[in-house]
Design a protein around this nucleic acid. Structure first.
Lengths: 202, 202
DNA sequence: CCCCGATCTTGACGCGGTTTAGATAAGAAT
DNA sequence: ATTCTTATCTAAACCGCGTCAAGATCGGGG
């Protein structure tokens, strides 16, 4: 009986595809995105430079897979934050903090996901919008609006919130400490303060 | 026998430094950031691959100079928008639209400025904060707050606005048209609507 | 007028992505 | 079990890239 594979049974190596992705993430964490070359990944996995070509069309496709894993993880984290908080301000803050937190805790991978490889957030909206990263973010902000807000304004709030999260993550990722940040209790408090402000914080 | 140049008289080439930067921008506009190699720039300028090393320490320094020009242009654009509008909501929208507009009109250069080469927005705050790109943005948003807002909240509003601009630019740069965008009158109207929303749009 | 030094070229090195041809080994066919 | 097939991997090569060392060139100061 043919092994119906969750992971296709490999021949020589033992699931090189998987090994390559993991090697990539290892390099990404330890040496940064600059060191993430196809050859380096192959070295790390202990195979020849040409071996990866039997599992990925080219370097971009390998990196896309790595980025895809990051997207899945981030999505999972957002879903968790959503599930653990009732719709409204608390959920918005929790979801937002989860997003920024992921970016800060996985800087190289985050960068790969949203800068180097654009395959992900690009393209027409995914199958189920509300289960996508932008979808969850937009929803969380939109639902945090007061009840009297029009649907259009609600949607604008969602987009504005989503945009602010992307920008905030970049700013925190690239910049040194802002004086205000420490005043407000480090990253945590700072993020929370900005998010609260975004949802009509007063 | 020497053609008297407008630019300071160089030796062999005729201000190769300048020519290299301009060649870089030409490649950036036409072929994108992926084609922006040192050798390609040298080719475009009609010199040997090693020639640039007499004007720039390495490839990064050349790209930094190109990015620096972009930063100067963007800064100029923001200053103009600031000067042409009195402090408050109108200035905030004008400045914000100028920022996003620059990013959309110079996608490859914008990306070089804020993704590929980080020398610019990175590092401790510049000499005069209020004459920097983040400074002008933060100020514009902070000043658009109602008068009864506390200094801390004002500053938070500035940072939130700045972050939203960065994110909005990315989103518009990477994504296809959002349905809402066309409803609101294309990029222009969309940006304006989001910005208005950011400053307590109700 | 000659020499100095800034500027540019030539040629090379090592690394990267990718392709081609060949070796290897697992499963299928006989 | 032996042979065949095919996926997998290696070896070797090609070309472009960033960079450096050595030499050629040329403008201006002595």
């Amino acid at each position: 009986m043919k092994p119906t594979r969750a992971t296709p049974k490999p021949y020589h190596h033992g699931d090189l595809r998987r090994a390559l992705i993991e090697a990539s993430r290892r390099i990404l964490e330890t040496e940064g995105i600059a060191a993430l070359s196809l050859r380096a990944v192959a070295r790390e996995a202990g195979v020849s430079p040409a071996a990866p070509y039997h599992h990925f069309r080219d370097r971009t496709e390998l990196l896309s897979e790595v980025a895809h894993e990051g997207t899945a993880e981030l999505l999972e984290s957002l879903k968790r934050a959503r599930a653990e908080n009732k719709a409204g301000r608390e959920r918005m803050i929790a979801v937002g903090a989860a997003y920024v937190g992921y970016g800060l805790n996985n800087p190289a991978l985050y960068r790969l996901m949203f800068e180097t490889i654009r395959v992900l957030e690009t393209g027409p909206l995914p199958v189920d919008v509300h289960e996508s990263i932008p979808g969850i973010l937009v929803d969380a902000f939109a639902e945090a609006m007061p009840p009297d807000v029009s649907p259009t304004d609600r949607r604008l709030a969602g987009i504005a919130g989503w945009a602010a999260l992307r920008g905030l993550t970049d700013i925190l990722r690239y910049r040194q400490l802002d004086p205000l940040k420490t005043e407000l209790g480090g990253d945590e408090g700072f993020i929370r303060a900005v998010l609260e402000h975004l949802s009509f914080g007063r």
